[in-house]
Design a protein around this nucleic acid. Structure first.
Lengths: 355, 355
DNA sequence: TTGTAAGCGTTATCAT
DNA sequence: ATGATAACGCTTACAA
């Protein structure tokens, strides 16, 4: 009986910020109508909309995200879920996502997870259920986990997976053609005259590792080159593991004249290991990496590598998530691409072998 | 009159998740009492608290963050505001923050800003006002902007600044002793016998650049070495700028026998530039960097550098923000340190000069 | 096309 | 120490 707060002239309470009520009162319509304007409802008199928009802009009114989140049962947040050890990759992805979110009401929230942990799925479930994210982007390698994708579905959270191959339908996936890209890179090595080529593969169980390895083998098969198993070493995408793998390969005799490393970190490690034992790159050893992260350009010699369009992929992933916002119009957009092509970046770490 | 929803046995509506009402009903108390339990109110009968906690755990009840955010007018989010170009640094900071947030109800939200833009302060103000963050962490170099700190105060948002020197009171600051650390690094070069030492300074207007440069000059002054201005080049902390600066220094004749670069990116660039012109590091040129980011250990030769305890600093910064949560007890905690010491990491890029 | 009333799930006020 | 009731600022049902 007591409070008729609508009577208060303006922005009652200390906060000072105008609410939907202020807008409604000042433009002489109901809250609901203002809400319709905010949410771009199509069934609205143009004149009404205009008037409300004017008041909104006069007042500098901005809808309160917390209140919307409560009412809509969904937050205006895009989550990035990852267990990727590579700083540069994670940051590139963040950059891509943020570019997509630019100018929208969405913000990005980052959630690293522990792939090893048995509780990982439960952790993510709790996270998603609590935060009610609008959607999440799954980075490799965790993005390869099908159970995780199913989990997102279950809790009703939109998701897009990033990966090295199509492991989901196009609406839920942005993929690159790693296999083909590595085939091309290896073929380039063969063209240059290399016949004894080492491979530092990615870790067992990673889709990207498999794809890249297959691309490597595709190229060899095409050229009818048969290589001993000993020319394949395995790393886990870290510099340290690359160092160990490189040492194994460089101890071989005869030594390979070229090495393809499944990512730049390990490629840089090959160069490092070679220098350490006085082997000149590229004169005595050609090296190719993968990712085109800054380190590949910064070491000496600059590393020939496969450019992985990670920023564009991440941007696209985020845009796929946002497709369903803005009510009507957004759906009509040309849909975001789902396949991205990686390309070979030729630098100084490859030359024909000297015999 | 119509809805007596309290009668519904359990988790009405589709969502299925128990609410505070379910807990209240099942434990035979009011919502407010449950709320008190959740918020660790001290004035609560122990027996009541116990009973409620039991029901909470039986039900697997978790308070809805969106509703709390609306009622409390503050989100359970910690923001990271930065305009730092260095991927590794940003990611280290994220790691530190996330470590601190581990096990709490808080999540991290990342907000890059554009230092150059005139609208920067307004952007941040809108961001803070809309999102109602619990607190933000300001990374250098934007953390050096006093107007930004004042803005946080104004909109009632807790903040902690990270920086290379104390630019705020301890509650709002975690700092490192860059000046002293660089003085030590330079002294080490002098000890080794170097007398002609180049400096690649950070960009004008950056506090970290000033601090590091002063440390450099402190050491020279101590050793009574007077160097020509030409031995000081300026970069902007990027690899490319480091390359340009290195070229300038290496063109000098006589050439310096050592170079201190104000960060690792530029230090790596020095090594890169040296190799490019056939100058051996460290035999003909010693190099020291700053930060101890992975690149310093990954290039050849591994770079002697100053280890900046950035992860710990970020963790501490986040903990400072959280000090005021948990009602009563947290305040009593030993307060987080505000000063962090950087230390010299000796690797292979420094030797005595050959004359 | 627009408005009314009833939530969304929590906390604050002010009793008792 | 605890509870009834009114916010918090927005959206959805359902009318009109």
């Amino acid at each position: 009986m007591s409070s008729k707060s609508e009577e208060v002239p303006f922005g009652r309470r200390g906060t000072g910020k105008p609410t939907i009520n202020d807008v409604a009162r000042l433009s002489g319509v109901s809250k609901k109508t203002v809400s319709r304007v905010i949410n771009r409802s199509p069934l609205l008199n143009d004149e009404t909309r205009r008037r409300v928009l004017e008041v909104i802009s006069d007042l500098g009114y901005v809808p309160n995200p917390q209140a919307r989140a409560l009412a809509l049962r969904t937050n205006f947040l895009i989550g990035l879920i990852h267990d990727n050890p590579n700083a540069q990759m994670v940051l590139n992805v963040q950059q891509g996502i943020l570019e997509a979110l630019q100018g929208t009401d969405f913000e990005m929230i980052v959630r690293p997870v522990d792939r090893g942990s048995a509780a990982m799925l439960d952790d993510v479930r709790h996270f998603l259920e609590r935060q009610r994210l609008y959607g999440v982007i799954l980075l490799p390698p965790i993005s390869e986990n099908d159970a995780l994708a199913r989990l997102c579905d279950e809790v009703g959270c939109r998701y897009v997976r990033m990966g090295s191959a199509e492991l989901d339908d196009p609406d839920h996936m942005v993929a690159s053609n790693d296999r083909e890209a590595v085939r091309g890179a290896t073929a380039y090595l063969i063209e240059q005259g290399h016949r004894s080529i080492g491979l530092i593969a990615g870790p067992h169980g990673f889709r990207s590792a498999t794809e890249r390895r297959q691309g490597f083998e595709d190229a060899l098969a095409e050229a009818k080159i048969k290589l001993p198993r000993s020319l394949i070493a395995e790393g886990n995408y870290t510099f340290a593991s690359g160092l160990a793998a490189a040492e194994k390969l460089l101890d071989l005799s005869p030594r390979p004249t070229a090495i393809f490393a499944s990512n730049d970190e390990m490629g840089a490690a090959v160069v490092h290991a070679a220098r350490q034992r006085g082997i000149d790159v590229p004169e005595q050893l050609s090296v190719i990496g993968f990712d085109d992260t800054p380190i590949s350009a910064h070491i000496w010699p600059p590393l020939t590598t496969v450019r992985w369009p990670i920023v564009s992929m991440a941007r696209s992933a985020a845009l796929k998530l946002l497709v369903s916002v803005g009510g009507a119009e957004a759906e009509a957009d040309v849909s975001e691409p789902s396949m991205f092509l990686s390309t070979l970046v030729k630098r100084a770490s490859v030359t024909p072998p000297k015999t």
